[in-house]
Design a protein around this nucleic acid. Structure first.
Lengths: 227, 227
DNA sequence: TTATGATTCAAACGAACGTATGAATCATAA
DNA sequence: TTATGATTCATACGTTCGTTTGAATCATAA
């Protein structure tokens, strides 16, 4: 027969699904693709997870639980070290984005595959995915926003949230977009600078988003009256 | 009967498809949705455009043709005004991204709907879409990269391309992600700061990406030897 | 060895998808 | 008015989708 050990069926499905969702998106990946490449029966996903949606959620939960706890731990440590004073913005940004990016160096935690999946999924259209991610992210997001508010007391909160958006966007896109970017820019960057080389990407991206965070505030006209 | 004028069937299909592709993505939008909301027969898309893929391409071509020509015109003008000297980076960035963002203020050119569609599509998984966009974008992209190379002669070209990526990412995400961002950040930003208010978004985004472009270069270890 | 619950299997289900077809209807000009 | 080509129409085709089913097979413990 095949080399199936029935005990790790769940894990094999999760690994394959993670990779295929990353490559083809949620809608673009069929149950038959997943079960085929995982060498399990078509019905196995529904048996072990209940549905395709539940599988997608489990793919994320498996990685996000650790990531979000780690983000909390790092911020806890930074705030403890600061002893009541606000934490430096660059440290907060590194705790949030750097933790995510460095997670990709650990194959046991999903590696580049999961990192790209996260990036791609943040712009996925499917309603249930966005709702699920919003719920998973809420607590951590609120903690980090509060930390940034404290760290930048002179910057309007709305501006901070905006820049958090922009940083998220640059990051998602950078990690999701290997292929997309390759096409758009023709990618004449040398081999050793490929996105696959995280040690090249991380410092560049961190430098960019920190530059954006520190940029002078835009001059805005006063808000128009609501009519 | 309905208020169908058979002459504008093509245009009505394009308008509806643009909106639905923006909202639900390419795979998530069915021919029956499109033709239903456009009040045309199911077969109309295949009759007028040939296929769903061809429809998607026409949705883009209708807007991108003007956008890319306008980007060329603006850069032509800037380079003429500079009279042989390099154009300032901030002007180049504004010519590329600002032209796109300001296009969204013109409902006749697609408005926010097309802007969001562009943003979302840059991370779409479908192969044919990415290939199509890469082809549409190639000429313009090369011109702008060259302009940036000339404007920043002391910055390694690879770094410039990287930061172009990051700027593209922040922009795509910001314009695509109304709903996604709303969820991720809980969106306690006041009403008048919504993404729908382009006059709020544009200066903030431009300030952010310019800050990123100007950020100090990251310190990199020398590239590892390829083995 | 046998009984039991967990897992895997082949096969099928109904629904939705993009597309194709040929007749009906329309606009236009001879 | 009639002939012609463009367009719209209702309907159906063949696929693929996610899911379900009931029997077969497995691991485990009495």
């Amino acid at each position: 027969m095949t080399d199936n050990r029935h005990g790790d069926t769940r894990e094999r499905i999760l690994d394959v699904a993670e990779r295929l969702f990353m490559e083809f998106g949620y809608d673009g990946t069929s149950m038959r693709q997943i079960t085929g490449e995982a060498n399990v029966n078509l019905a196995a996903v529904n048996y072990h997870f209940g549905s395709k949606e539940a599988l997608m959620q489990e793919v994320f939960r498996r990685r996000l639980d650790w990531l979000n706890e780690e983000r909390m731990r790092v911020l806890d440590r930074l705030e403890a070290e600061a002893g009541g004073k606000p934490v430096k913005p660059s440290l907060i940004v590194d705790a949030f984005f750097g933790t995510l990016l460095r997670m990709a160096e650990d194959e046991g935690r999903g590696g580049m595959t999961f990192l790209r999946l996260i990036g791609r999924t943040l712009t996925e259209p499917s309603e249930f995915i966005r709702a699920f991610l919003a719920h998973e992210y809420k607590t951590v997001m609120d903690r980090y926003k509060e930390a940034l508010f404290r760290a930048l007391p002179d910057v309007p909160k709305a501006e901070i949230v905006w820049r958090f958006h922009f940083m998220l966007g640059a990051t998602s896109y950078a990690i999701a977009g290997t292929d997309a970017l390759r096409l758009v820019t023709d990618w004449q960057i040398e081999e050793e600078d490929s996105v696959d080389r995280l040690d090249r990407l991380v410092p560049r991206l961190m430098s960019f988003i920190l530059g954006g965070l520190r940029a002078p505030l835009a001059q805005l006209d006063p808000p128009a009256v609501n009519d």
